[in-house]
Design a binder for these strands. Structure first.
Length: 283
DNA sequence: CTGCACCCCTGTAGGC
DNA sequence: TGCCTACAGGGGTGCA
């Protein structure tokens, strides 16, 4: 999925295409899409009909559409898309929910091949849905407190990559941007959080923000058709990836071939020279 | 608190 | 051409 830059790209698209409009018909076509809405898919659809969408919000990888004082939460999981379509465009094979609007304009479709994404309704959740209260602020939010992050991080006894993937500590970072930010900061993924210096953590935070910012400008990273913007277009940040997916390619900084390693049951990429293995790491 | 195994799914790539 | 495995950008839960 979609990590923060991709979700932000979708948020921006929804803001331009959906905000201010009123739901007419809502259809939840696949029950898994509403599995976190305990009252069920039909209740979710019925609750949304007639609601007017406010300014689209995001925290980390979660999106929400304020609907009056309430909110429609959307998480894209690994393969979710929110795309705008017109009535003459046939539904593709993995459409899980459709939304039409009272103005008769373009509709909204929730598409999700692997069904790890979900939709849910959060009563009173317009400002911050209760269902995502456990998600920490993301580093692009004004409310993100750098000092608080540094101190929380250093009380952990784990490796730095594991820590930045923990959405309750800092949100929005997934496997791709974790690797890119660690490379920019020159940190190995196993560096122990309790042994990191404050300057290391601040350098990493700056790297996360920089890579997020560049990726947002590029419209996100798309390896394939699974991730697209609301208009169906792909982002092009994949061309700027320094290490992720670059096994055997030269490090853009020193030329050393990038290595791929198994970590947390997935792949990690790093430069063995810029990001040397620590003597006493944690993983 | 932390790690870890496992679950939810589908599709694709690569080896045989 | 199959068949099989590994793997893919997430996150929640339950257990040790």
């Amino acid at each position: 999925m979609p990590e923060l830059p991709e979700v932000e790209t979708v948020r921006d698209g929804l803001q331009r295409h959906i905000s201010g409009r009123t739901f007419a018909d809502v259809q939840v076509l696949h029950p898994r899409a509403a599995r976190r809405h305990l009252a069920g898919p039909d209740d979710l659809a019925a609750t949304l009909r007639g609601g007017t969408v406010g300014d689209i919000r995001r925290r980390g990888k979660y999106l929400w559409l304020p609907v009056n004082d309430d909110a429609l939460i959307a998480h894209l999981g690994m393969s979710g898309q929110l795309v705008v379509g017109t009535a003459d465009q046939p539904l593709t094979s993995h459409v899980r929910a459709t939304f039409s609007f009272t103005d008769g304009g373009p509709d909204l479709r929730f598409v999700d091949q692997r069904t790890f994404g979900h939709l849910a309704f959060s009563p009173g959740g317009a400002e911050l849905p209760a269902a995502i209260a456990h998600i920490a602020p993301d580093p692009l939010e004004p409310g993100f407190d750098d000092d608080r992050f540094v101190s929380k991080l250093r009380t952990r006894r784990t490796g730095i990559k594991r820590a930045i993937l923990d959405q309750s500590l800092i949100s929005g970072v997934g496997n791709i941007y974790a690797d890119e930010a660690l490379w920019r900061a020159g940190l190995h993924w196993a560096r122990g959080t309790d042994a990191l210096r404050r300057t290391d953590v601040l350098r990493l935070l700056a790297a996360i923000r920089a890579v997020f910012g560049e990726a947002i400008l590029a419209g996100g990273t798309s390896f394939d058709s699974l991730y697209v913007q609301v208009n169906g277009q792909s982002g092009y940040f994949d061309r700027s990836l320094a290490v992720y997916g670059q096994e055997g390619e030269p490090c853009p900084r020193c030329g050393t071939p990038i290595v791929r390693e198994k970590f947390m049951n997935r792949s990690s990429f790093r430069c063995p020279r810029c990001q040397p293995r620590p003597r006493r790491g944690r993983w």
